[in-house]
Design a protein around this nucleic acid. Sequence first.
DNA 1: TACCACACCTAAAACTCTTATGTATGTTTG
DNA 2: CAAACATACATAAGAGTTTTAGGTGTGGTA
Lengths: 110, 110
Amino acid sequence: MDSNKKFLNGTLNTILLALLKENGKMYGYEICQLTKAKTDNTILLTEGAIYPALHRLEKDGLLLSSKEKANGRTRKYYSLNSSASHKIDSQIALLSQFTGHLQSLLNLTA
Amino acid sequence: MDSNKKFLNGTLNTILLALLKENGKMYGYEICQLTKAKTDNTILLTEGAIYPALHRLEKDGLLLSSKEKANGRTRKYYSLNSSASHKIDSQIALLSQFTGHLQSLLNLTA
DNA sequence: TACCACACCTAAAACTCTTATGTATGTTTG
DNA sequence: CAAACATACATAAGAGTTTTAGGTGTGGTA
């Protein structure tokens, strides 16, 4: 209850887009691990959240996917759909702007 | 759809706490107006969202309320419940930490 | 008189996330 | 070698918050 899990709500889609923009191509499990590592175990993406989110984004035409095998296991890689880059960039920019405003609100800068 | 409304999800409670910590005492309508003004019309709190949120926070013991009349209209002022200040501060700190991590993720700082 | 700003409130619907499972393979450990 | 754990995908019920849309009432203004 006193965790920051709920803060994630609404920002997950855009986080996924931003990570894929940065890293080119990633699979779900990798996204969970990388995010956890990059944020000192603060932002913990659960698989129950990200798989449906990735599916949504693909369905909405923002992502493309392809399956590959590695070590006997199947990975489903996702990457940005360049046809939607305008939409993607604007969504990332909006989140960036939002967090900026949020911090200035939180930092008590009257 | 291409708005940032959904980013708010999950952060609203803590935004309210942070605003009240900064301003001491505010009423719902005022919170909407101030937030809109302070964020260049970016963070738009709707009344349908904030009134239930304020009620929840009061019910959970984080806020106190009192009614006052001004210009013939009734305002319901909310302020932090000092008995819960530890809880409140930790929640604000968590959101601050979360947005920090979020920005470093978004800013593509590998 | 209408309309807008102020100021509160609630409820149904939509949406997302958590929690809990399930499947399956490869690796490590007791 | 069996158990446990990490990798890697997936779905569904339930919980929770927000949007959307409506409602009430006062005061000022065109």
